[in-house]
Design a protein around this nucleic acid. Structure first.
Length: 556
RNA sequence: UGUCCCAUGGUGUAAUUGGCAACACGUCUGGUUUUGGUCCAGAAGAGUCUAGGUUCGAGCCCUAGUGGGACAACCA
């Protein structure tokens, strides 16, 4: 983040040069605790914390908890965890909008006394009607001219709990004819007899977003309030309230940027919640979810997510990022760090007929060719092995470098083997291959210098470990599910987004692996250990495949 | 019949007015390779939504148009 520059950094820089807010830079990340954070939030987090860091300022974490009926501590906890995991630190600056409920209330009374706010007794639908439309001005409420005394009395009784939900609201008195709907006497407080996750039953009136956000920024000393484009139209109102509140030159400034969209995924918290509640996915941390907890479980690294955010930049144009860029970001990171290992997803048995029956021989394998310090490990080689089903073809096409009848290939780090016989079951399915090995080729090189084109991964059938491997594909079948207006979004789900392979085999090295540990299965992709994995049953997620030029060729 | 925002290769971003537009991903070639991975070398692909204007000179400034988006929740 420190390297890149964007229009927001330019504006901040200008503010500093002009000496605004005494040259301070103080940002905030303000999630509502009503759902789990997703990769779209990661963009905001990186921007908020990254901007502060770049200019030697600070960034607060503030929970925007003004709507108790939708919010929950479960979300608070997950949000904190996800931000830390991403690599950011709010230090001692953890706030809640609810911390400021008293000050907000006092400010509301102030506005009432100044004749800038009034209590409206009308029901929601009437108020909505009177608001007009974007093209037609609104009309004033009959309660607009109430005296400050009456307003104050009513507002205090609202606070005291005298009225039921929806009976009255507090409105700012601005301009019912404004072309900006948000300036047409916006609601400041509504009555909601609900228990709040922090303030309990102290309040039965809660401030609306517009009456809370900017002021909280002000109370916290925020200088740059960065948010997504949909709040652009709120900015005049944001400034209006701040102007009523401010006692000197200090002003927080709202700047908007476009949110992150990814192809084949959906960022709506509401819709993600729907998927969770209706069991379309296993939970907020289902590895197919674009949530940070889901991506973490799937095997994405914080580095890869930060790298993606860096690559996409910050602008006001609304675009959609190709998931391929995300995939590149993980591969790029994992390639440098992931322990290499061999695992067979779709096992095909191979018997080395000229290899001793009970022999277990250790061959040495490199742990990470990109990192010499990762060292080496021993992998057991035996007479009976598994190889990938896709690595054998009875009638191979041109340029098929893998195994086929009569052909010789290298088993990685072990020996050259030649296929002599194909065994099939009654159904005609290939169920076993009989091969011979060349004892002279131990380690994978032949003393006579003969070359083999193909190198296959393998796992000992007797020493290997069985595992369940879960393969994930895009959650949605269409590039832009949010843009599909005709169909219900659940109809756009990819029915094949999860494939469970119960009978995979991995090398014994994986026995000591713990949840979240990451590996590259050579030639197959990047994988990690799932949280459901136990000593009895190894459960592994595929994060992403390796780039695969061969399958690209085959598809042409 | 409003206000505001946006518009650069397939995608996402650059370009402090003045060298027929740069980078990343993706795509395609070729090389290296005990991962058809990585790495290396190279290629194709836009003339900057349109029309005017300002200027010696405009992707950058102005105007109009076109296209897309936001705004009418007691949500944030």
């Amino acid at each position: 983040m420190a390297k890149t520059r964007n229009f927001i950094h330019e504006l901040v820089e200008k503010d500093i040069q002009e000496g605004k807010n005494t040259g301070r830079v103080h940002t905030r990340f303000p999630p509502e605790p009503n759902g789990y954070l997703h990769i779209g939030h990661a963009k905001a987090i990186c921007l908020d914390f990254g901007t502060a860091e770049k200019f030697g300022g600070k960034c607060n974490l503030r929970f925007d908890d003004t709507n108790p009926t939708k919010e929950d501590v479960e979300y608070v906890d997950s949000i904190k965890e996800d931000i830390k995991w991403l690599g950011f630190d709010w230090e001692d600056r953890l706030y809640y909008a609810s911390d400021f409920f008293d000050r907000l209330y006092d400010f509301a009374e102030q506005l009432i006394q100044e004749g800038k706010a009034y209590v409206d007794d009308q029901p929601a639908d009437l108020i909505s009607q009177q608001r007009g439309t974007p093209t037609k001005p609104g009309v004033e409420s009959p309660y607009r001219k109430r005296s400050a005394e009456e307003n104050l009395d009513l507002f205090r009784r609202m606070k005291a709990g005298e009225f039921k939900n929806g009976a009255r609201v507090l409105r700012a008195k601005i301009d019912m004819t404004s072309p900006n709907m948000h300036m047409r006497d916006p609601l400041m407080y509504r009555i909601n007899h609900a228990e709040h996750h922090r303030t309990g039953n102290k309040w039965c009136i809660y401030p609306m977003y517009d009456f809370a956000h900017g002021q909280c920024d002000y109370f916290e000393g925020i200088t740059h309030s960065l948010c997504t484009l949909e709040f652009e139209i709120h900015r005049p109102l944001y400034n209006w309230f701040i102007d009523q509140l401010a006692t000197d030159d200090y002003r927080p400034r709202q700047i908007e940027f476009s949110r992150l969209n990814l192809t084949y995924t959906m960022m709506s918290k509401r819709k993600l919640l729907y998927l969770v509640e209706n069991d379309f996915v296993s939970g907020w941390d289902d590895p197919r979810m674009p949530t940070l907890s889901g991506m973490r479980r799937r095997g994405f690294t914080p580095e890869s997510i930060r790298s993606l955010v860096e690559k996409v930049g910050i602008t006001k144009t609304e675009g959609t990022i190709d998931v391929a860029l995300l995939e590149h970001a993980v591969r790029d990171d994992l390639n440098k760090t992931a322990q290499r290992v061999m695992g067979v997803l779709n096992p095909l048995k191979v018997v080395i007929t000229n290899y001793p029956e009970d022999k277990v021989e250790m061959v040495q394998a490199i742990n990470n060719p990109e990192d010499e310090s990762a060292g080496r490990r021993d992998v057991p080689f035996t007479r009976e092995l598994y190889i990938e089903r896709d690595d054998f073809m009875e009638e191979p096409p041109r340029k098929f470098f893998r195994l086929s009848p009569g052909k010789e290939v290298r088993l990685r780090y072990a020996y050259y083997v030649t296929c002599n016989e194909v065994i099939k079951d009654e159904a005609g399915e290939i169920c076993e291959l009989r091969c011979t090995y060349d004892p002279e080729t131990r380690g994978g090189n032949s003393p006579d210098g003969r070359k083999v084109k193909g190198t296959l991964h393998w796992v000992s059938a007797t020493e290997g470990v069985k595992a369940e491997i879960r393969l994930y594909d895009r959650l949605f079948n269409v590039e832009n599910p949010a843009g599909e207006k005709e169909k219900e979004f659940t109809e756009l789900l990819n029915p094949e987004s999860l494939k469970v392979l119960p009978d995979c085999f991995v090398e014994p090295f994986l026995r000591s692996a713990k949840p979240l540990d990451q590996f590259q299965f050579e030639r197959m992709g990047y994988f990690n250990i799932d949280k459901e994995s136990t000593e009895e049953k190894l459960v592994i997620n595929r994060t992403v495949t390796l780039r695969d030029n061969w399958s690209k060729q085959m598809n042409k």
